[in-house]
Amino acid sequence: MTEWLLEVRGLKKYYPLSTGLHIGGHREFVKAVDGVSFNVREGEVLSLVGESGCGKTTTGKVVVGLYEPSEGNIFFRGEDASPLAGRVPRRERQMVFQDPTAALNPRKTIFDSLNRPFRAQLKRDASNEEMHQLMEDVGLVPPEYFLHKYPHELSGGQKQRVVVAQAIALKPSFVVADEPVSSLDLSIRGQILNLLKDLQRKFNLSILFITHDLAVARHVSDRVAIMYLGKIVELADSEEFFTNVMHPYAQALLGAALKADPKANRMTEYKPLVGDVPSPINPPSGCRFRARCPAAGVKCNKGELEPELVEFRPGHYVACHICA
């Protein structure tokens, strides 16, 4: 058997720019994910970090089985994991969503929402013990108090706990956490992050943790992958990444992470990246990052080859001509 729980090879997800009936004409695509490969072990937390438009959320949704990939392969425990193939049971791969208010049906009680996976997949209701245990696992106690409530009666942090409960209800092996704390208040984030870490340890979950916040990534990950415009530009063990970050974009992300100490903020002369995050509709040829890269050279230019992920140090991959 393979050592990897999840294997992703050359994943692409393109969206056509307009839908509906078309007669001829040139189709443009949004290349949300444009050739992404990575693996995840059992019990490992891999963070997928990037800014808006980099494709991290789309990657997560394809990998969890919500969308079909346009190209590429996904293997789960060695089996073809595409939704159409239907070889991976639904319960194995689940997702924690970003906005708890949007992720819960406003007209269903907490009990109904949590019961859903039981009815849909096990064809029965959740037993009292199962429901109580689930609520305790996510820290919503006493269970009787919460089970008959509606989402609008709960706070943001409580709702997010319900969303986590929905994900782990049937004991999945793999969870995609899509910016799970980004819409929560700062003082509540730690509660949810610690909850996820505890659940990960308790159930030996593998987690693909999607975030734009490197500080959060540092506190939860075993390994880190940085995405830019649909591709992974750097991938390494967490501590290795933060000590020896190599790709210019990853360096920029790290540099942009401000400090809490006002003195520190004044002293560090951080030169922000120029330019804006480009659109995934027509990514630049050559290296996608060249337009904003402070270290770009001739090899990175338009018309040249795109850099591939190369292992520069043990377990530390970078896609950059300059680093070579």
């Binding site: 049906n105 007209r107 269903k108 859903r116 996976p117 849909a120 969303v163 929905q166």
Partner: peptide
């Protein structure tokens, strides 16, 4: 487009049931 519909899919519900039981009441 709301996330709870995606969440319902991940629960294993069929599209028809989602339409009828999750979306229609709203």
């Amino acid at each position: 487009e709301r996330e709870f519909v995606e969440s319902a899919r991940l629960s294993g519900m069929s599209e028809w049931r989602i339409m009828l039981m999750e979306v229609l009441p709203n």
